[in-house]
């Protein structure tokens, strides 16, 4: 049986306590929400924190609140996100994405906050300690070089969260609370294009809320490519959100890809093509064509990278088609 490395466990009751506790350990602690990403990694010895700060006992981290838009507290489980009626009707891509994560058990345990902070993945990295020892360690953990791109000075591990591309596409923001206070940043700024330092927040900052603006008629979809219809991480995720003006022209467009880079990738060119236009077959084709350019998957997830890249175009087209039918 694979076992966790020893740690001290702390169960703060409030956000403030959690942040203070983290500060006390000065980097030797980690936050744990559902633990569904963290514990497998700890069992494989990607992380051996001295202390875990468990977030599950913090009531103020749970719940979905309707305000101007909608606020989802970070500790809300994915099953709650997936089954929430307002999310299902007005922010359907997010409910869909949450429902496509892994398995029912993991969705009941995993949280939206944890999903957004999910460690980047790479099949040279998500392996047991002895496997990595056999290969020689890579720079993301214990080593010097990148195994996928040995000449490269950076890590190309893949952003594999289903919900992040959606939250970015929906113009979401996240509230961060840290020892230096509180701030709200755009969801897209939560990510960096680096497989190791993949989060645009300080380590001691806690994600407390995900804020979505009023839906305002925005239609959204999320499509996920994976080998099996359960368990599997996305090897490509496409989140698309369109708002149509009353004349049928596209007033706002965002298309964001997951699973093909170290961060959710925004298809800026596709969005530019869509703006102010009516959604025709030709336009869908052009936008899809433009979308697959920024995707640069490497051979470090399931399936081949050329296949994943090819699928980007197909999936973006299908996402837009689905929106045109909605």
């Amino acid at each position: 049986m694979l076992r966790l490395p020893p740690f001290e466990y702390h169960a703060p009751r409030s956000i403030e306590q959690a942040v203070n506790l983290y500060a006390q350990f000065g980097g030797a602690a980690m936050f744990a929400a559902g633990g569904t990403d963290l514990y497998p990694n700890m069992k494989r010895r990607q992380f051996t924190p001295q202390a875990l700060i468990g977030l599950n006992g913090i009531d103020e981290l749970r719940g979905i609140v309707q305000d101007n838009g909608i606020t989802i507290r970070a500790g809300t489980t994915l099953s709650q996100v997936a089954s929430h009626p307002i999310l299902q009707s007005q922010y359907s891509a997010l409910a869909t994405a949450a429902n496509l994560v892994s398995t029912p058990q993991l969705r009941a345990m995993g949280t939206l906050g944890g999903n957004l902070c999910l460690d980047t993945r790479c099949n040279y990295y998500n392996q047991e300690f002895s496997w990595r020892q056999a290969l020689g360690f890579c720079m993301k953990k214990d080593g010097e070089i990148c195994m996928v791109a040995p000449g490269s000075s950076r890590c190309w591990a893949v952003s594999s969260t289903d919900c992040a591309p959606v939250v970015v596409a929906l113009d979401g923001r996240v509230r961060l609370v840290g020892p230096r206070g509180e701030r709200v940043i755009a969801a897209s700024d939560l990510y960096r294009d680096d497989g190791i330092l993949y989060l645009g927040k300080e380590r001691d900052e806690l994600v407390t809320e995900i804020l979505l603006p009023p839906a305002d008629g925005t239609k959204s979809v999320y499509l996920k490519l994976r080998r099996r219809d359960s368990f599997d991480f996305p090897i490509l995720g496409v989140a698309a959100a369109l708002r149509f003006a009353s004349n049928g022209e596209i007033a706002n467009a965002r298309i964001v890809l997951g699973g093909v880079g170290s961060r959710p990738l925004e298809c800026v060119e596709s969005a530019r093509l869509l703006m102010g236009q009516k959604l025709t077959r030709e336009l869908i084709g052009a936008a899809a064509e433009a979308a697959w350019k920024p995707a640069r998957p490497l051979d470090n997830t399931d399936s081949t990278h050329s296949y994943r890249k090819k699928m980007t175009r197909v999936y973006v087209a299908r996402a837009l088609e689905a929106l045109s039918e909605k």
Partner: peptide, 21 residues
Amino acid sequence: DLGECGACTVLVDGTPILACL
């Protein structure tokens, strides 16, 4: 032991979760 099979499923307050995680 890594959340990848479901063999360790138990119920917590009636909801299935994975005992290994």
